[in-house]
Amino acid sequence: MKNNKIFYFIVILIMAIFFVLLLGLKEEKNYIPQSDIKKLNNSISLKELYSGKNIFLNDLFLTNELNLINIWASWCLPCKAEHPYLINLNEKFDINLIGINYKDNLDNSKKFLSDLGNPYDEVLVDSDGTKSIELGAIGVPETYLINNENKIIKKFIGPLDQDDYENIINLIKK
């Protein structure tokens, strides 16, 4: 009688493990950013690309428009690929675009912007990558949408594509 109970228990346990592992096969294995991100810290300050002045990131956020932070570098090839989307966004929509230049040579980054066009309302410099860590970035390019309460509402890891672009437009129109 007692053995029967143990028997059923073990069989059920094995089946449960089986189903969990089966579901586990479908899970994403790589890092995906958390969805519930808190308010941005208001102590993050960076230098402006052209003037070299220190600016607090939070001072740049507008309350009547959506804010878009784009982390980029001139040495990063995918950044070139997503550049036209950023230019389109800036030209056609009311959005506050802030560029953060990640671990770059300043001359190269200025040349990048003069060659390909400057989509940013403001370009800030993060020469050692530490500010990007404070924002929760893992590399370049990354793009964050920030609402009027200084909260990150969406993170795009990697270059923006057509879907992301439309996604951003829908959010602007809302």
Binding site: K103, G129, T130, I133, I138
Partner: peptide
């Protein structure tokens, strides 16, 4: 990696 190097720097700070 860039990420790890920046992370180390930030932690030092």
């Amino acid at each position: 990696s860039d990420f790890a190097l920046s992370m180390k720097k930030l932690i030092r700070i």
